[in-house]
């Protein structure tokens, strides 16, 4: 009986010692996905403090070493490397384990289109960049197929599927030949993002000015200003009228209103009047005598 009692006491002591000396350990799963709750089994004994240090989250909590640690879905929303640290309370001993959280399966598109306003007939004038992220805005690294599409009132055209590299895919588009809006979209499966680009007339073409004298002033007026494809140049575009006479050179900048630029200039004898808009020069007019 005495021998049995001693054996029991000895065994109990050994069990207590083995628990007390059991080293801390954490065993995170090999594959962890952002936004999916996980359980990290731990080993060891006694009270401990668990730290989770990640790119988008930091947590600290008291646990019982040996228990499983529940990590909530919101705690691992950011993809990247996390450090799980387990420290014995009131001791210096800490254990660290790193684990990687991969982006989640959900997809979203960040779609950048530039510029928002473009002249017609420009090659490679529109840049479209699609960035594929998951619902937590982690870059999705696996290749995904994105389709770009351009739509006007008249028609639409689509690209073949284009594969992302490191989460990014891009294309360039020529602007159309007719002014108006063009809708650029990027589609990834059921997800689609759209942007609208305003196509406006290019540089004026055949800029033509006429003049009418009114007392000591001359009234200058352009014909409707259009680009070479017949698109009306937008109101607000500046047309520059220049008068050269015995007093020298004088210039007036007039914005196009309702398709026409108009101004008045003082008239004091023979003068040459010219008109220009941007890099385009129009006709010259000679007033008040021979050239």
């Amino acid at each position: 009986m005495r021998v049995l009692g001693c054996t029991f006491v000895l065994c109990s002591a050994l069990v207590v010692m083995s628990h007390a000396q059991m080293p801390l350990a954490l065993h995170p799963p090999a594959n962890i996905t952002a936004g999916e709750a996980v359980t990290i089994p731990s080993s060891g004994s006694g009270l401990a403090i668990f730290y989770l240090i990640g790119p988008g989250h930091v947590a600290k909590r008291n646990i019982q070493a040996g228990d499983s640690i529940q990590i909530g879905s919101e705690e691992i929303a950011a993809a990247g490397t996390y450090q799980a640290i387990l420290c014995k309370e009131k001791e210096q001993e800490c254990l660290n384990t790193n684990f990687y959280v991969a982006p989640s399966r959900g997809k979203e598109l960040v779609f950048l289109v530039h510029p928002s306003r473009v002249a017609v007939g420009e090659p490679n004038a529109i840049s479209a960049v699609a960035v594929v992220v998951d619902r937590f805005h982690n870059l999705r690294l696996q290749p995904e197929n994105v389709i770009f599409r351009a739509t006007t009132k008249e028609a639409a055209v689509s690209s073949p599927p284009q594969e992302t590299r490191n989460g990014i895919v891009w294309t360039r588009l020529n602007s159309g030949l007719k002014d108006g809006t063009v809708e650029i979209s990027a589609t990834l499966g059921q997800i689609s993002e759209r942007r609208v680009v305003q196509q406006v007339a290019a540089e004026p073409c055949h800029l033509h000015v006429s003049a009418g004298q009114k007392g000591s002033h001359v009234i200058l007026q352009t014909e409707p200003v259009r680009d070479c494809r017949g698109n009306a140049v937008p109101d607000g575009t500046i047309v520059t009228f220049t008068k050269l006479d015995k007093l020298g050179r004088s210039t007036v900048d007039a914005p196009i209103k309702k398709g026409i630029a108009r101004t008045e200039m003082a008239f004091s004898g023979p003068a040459t009047i010219s008109v220009a808009s941007g890099v385009v020069a129009g006709n010259d007019i000679h007033l008040g005598g021979p050239r």
Partner: peptide
């Protein structure tokens, strides 16, 4: 022709 002139043509540029 209308399609070609009216629609902005996609240029599938390769990086």
């Amino acid at each position: 022709k209308l399609l070609a002139s009216a629609v902005a043509c996609l240029l599938f540029a390769v990086p």
